[in-house]
Lab assay of single mutants.
Amino acid sequence: TTYKLILNGKTLKGETTTEAVDAETAERVFKEYAKKNGVDGEWTYDDATKTFTVTE
């Protein structure tokens, strides 16, 4: 399944996708990605669109 991440950081904005077996796995991948890019904020997930959003 393809999951999407929307980054709404103070200095970094953008989108990325990952293939994962479930939302929990995708969330771990995306949180590591955000951490590596210095983005830390509020996380939300929309199951209907398989989209995570992190907003600083």
Rank of each mutant, 00 (worst) to 15 (best):
E56Y: 10
T55H: 08
D47K: 09
E24I: 15
A26D: 00
K31T: 05
A26F: 01
V21A: 12
T11E: 11
T18K: 04
N37E: 08
A26R: 00
L7I: 15
T49Y: 05
G9P: 03
K10W: 09
L7A: 03
K50F: 11
V29W: 12
K35Y: 13
E56L: 07
G41K: 01
L5E: 00
E56T: 07
A23E: 06
K35D: 07
V21W: 13
G14V: 15
A48W: 08
L5V: 03
K13E: 06
T44F: 11
G9M: 11
E24P: 09
N8V: 11
V29M: 10
G14R: 14
F30C: 02
K13T: 11
R28W: 08
A20I: 03
K4V: 11
K31P: 00
T25D: 09
L7P: 01
F30M: 03
A34I: 06
V21F: 11
T51M: 04
T44P: 00
T2Y: 10
V54M: 06
T16A: 15
G38N: 14
D46H: 05
E32Y: 07
A26S: 02
T51Q: 04
E42T: 15
F52M: 02
E32I: 09
I6D: 03
E56G: 05
G9Y: 06
K35F: 15
V54P: 01
G14H: 10
Y3G: 00
V29Q: 09
K50N: 06
N37T: 10
K4E: 02
A48P: 09
R28Q: 09
K50P: 00
T25S: 14
A34F: 03
N37G: 05
T49W: 04
T16Q: 10
W43P: 01
L12G: 07
T2W: 14
D22V: 03
N8G: 04
E42R: 11
K50V: 03
L7T: 05
K10H: 15
T1D: 13
T53H: 07
I6H: 05
D46G: 02
V21N: 13
K13S: 12
G41N: 01
T53M: 10
T25H: 15
I6E: 04
L5A: 03
Y45T: 01
F52A: 01
V39K: 02
V39A: 03
K31R: 14
G9Q: 04
L12C: 09
T2E: 08
T18A: 10
E56D: 08
T25E: 15
T16N: 05
G41Q: 02
A48C: 07
A34L: 07
A26G: 02
E19V: 13
A34H: 01
V29R: 10
L12V: 15
T16P: 02
A20S: 07
V54W: 03
T16E: 06
N8W: 13
E27D: 05
Y33R: 03
N8D: 15
T25V: 10
T18F: 12
T55Q: 07
V39Q: 03
E56H: 09
D46L: 04
V39G: 03
K31W: 08
D46E: 09
V29S: 07
D40Q: 14
T17H: 12
F52P: 00
R28P: 03
A34K: 01
D40G: 10
K13P: 05
L12W: 14
D47E: 15
V21K: 15
T16F: 15
K13R: 13
E15M: 14
G38T: 04
K31A: 05
D47Q: 11
Y3T: 00
V39M: 07
T25P: 02
K31L: 08
F30S: 00
W43T: 01
G38V: 04
D40M: 13
E15C: 07
G41V: 02
D47G: 10
L5D: 00
K35I: 10
F30P: 00
E19R: 08
T2M: 13
D46K: 04
E27W: 15
G41R: 01
A34D: 00
K10P: 08
N37H: 15
K13F: 10
E15K: 08
T55K: 06
W43F: 04
D47V: 12
D40N: 12
V54A: 03
T18I: 14
G9V: 10
F30N: 00
D47T: 12
Y3M: 01
D47W: 08
V54L: 11
L12N: 07
A23C: 08
K36A: 10
F52N: 00
L5P: 00
D46F: 05
D40S: 13
Y45P: 00
W43E: 00
V54T: 03
T53K: 06
T53F: 08
T49H: 07
L12H: 15
I6K: 08
T44E: 15
V29G: 04
K50W: 07
T11V: 13
G41S: 02
I6C: 05
V54N: 02
E32C: 06
K4P: 00
T18N: 04
T55M: 06
T51S: 05
D47I: 12
Y45C: 01
V54S: 02
D40E: 15
T17Y: 14
V54K: 01
E27Q: 12
G41D: 02
T2L: 11
T16D: 04
A26P: 01
K4G: 04
F30W: 02
K36W: 09
K50Y: 10
K4W: 13
T53Q: 06
A34G: 03
Y45I: 02
V21L: 14
K31Q: 08
T44Q: 12
T18E: 04
F52E: 00
L5T: 01
E32Q: 11
A20E: 05
T51D: 01
K35Q: 11
T18P: 01
T1C: 06
R28G: 07
W43R: 00
T55I: 08
T11P: 04
V29P: 01
K50A: 06
D22S: 09
E56Q: 14
N37V: 15
A23G: 05
D22L: 04
E27T: 05
N8E: 08
G14S: 15
G14N: 08
T55F: 08
F52T: 01
